[in-house]
Amino acid sequence: MGDDFESVVVDDEYKLVRVRTPFVCLLHWVIVASVITLCVTGLYVGSPILMFGTGEPYDAFVMAKTRFVHFVTASVLLTALLLRLYHSFSPSTRRDIYEILPTPSNISGALHLMWFYLTGKGRHEHYRYLNPLGGISVFLMICLFALETTTGFALYSQQANHISWGWALWFPSLMGRIFGGMPGVRLLHHLGMYCLLSLVVVHVYMKVYVSIVFKEADIVSIISGHKLFRRDVIAQY
């Protein structure tokens, strides 16, 4: 792996190592914020229970506004995801796509880690970047993002039949054909949210767990871009 990240000495035992650029950190939190917004607004769209004020159209436009927020956030999410993916592939940055793709070595690494987390047996390596299990869960998240954005934009283009963009016409029909009509697309969009949320629960738990148990400031690494490593571990890199 490249040595293009500076290391900062903290003390005799620990060393701060830069593992991400600030931009990638920023993208992570943009993605987190938009996913939360999309889930909240999406759930309301799926099951509108609240009514504000008199509830009369002149007074409140709850559904319209909620959907507006959902759609704007959808674009923010898509942009952030595309930028993040570009980062994974771009030769000018560290190509972390190899840590994310479910290659045989990543899968076996992930299984080892899972075995370790569940039974405490085996060895826990120190990973400078994503560990194989984290990589796989990010891969699954990316798949779900792909599902949410394709089904989401298919639903969106349904109401956009005044738009003359080509995709607005073929996209819903393609999605409809794959998923059994627009209700099927809608259902998948809805279920996809729950799958994503369950992964997020696992993701956050694992990060908190690793940060506490291995004292590597794993969570800090997605905020400041630095990870804390013991000197004897860093010798591996």
């Binding site: 405490g120 279920l191 729950y194 949320l197 369950s198 629960v201 738990y205 767990y209 148990v213």
Partner: peptide, 24 residues
């Protein structure tokens, strides 16, 4: 219904995490 399935999924993930945390 979709919601029941979804809640179960997220719930299962949460419970799994909690159990694992208590265990560790």
């Amino acid at each position: 219904t979709a919601d029941k399935i979804g809640m179960t999924l997220v719930g299962a993930a949460g419970v799994g995490a909690a159990v694992h945390a208590a265990y560790t």
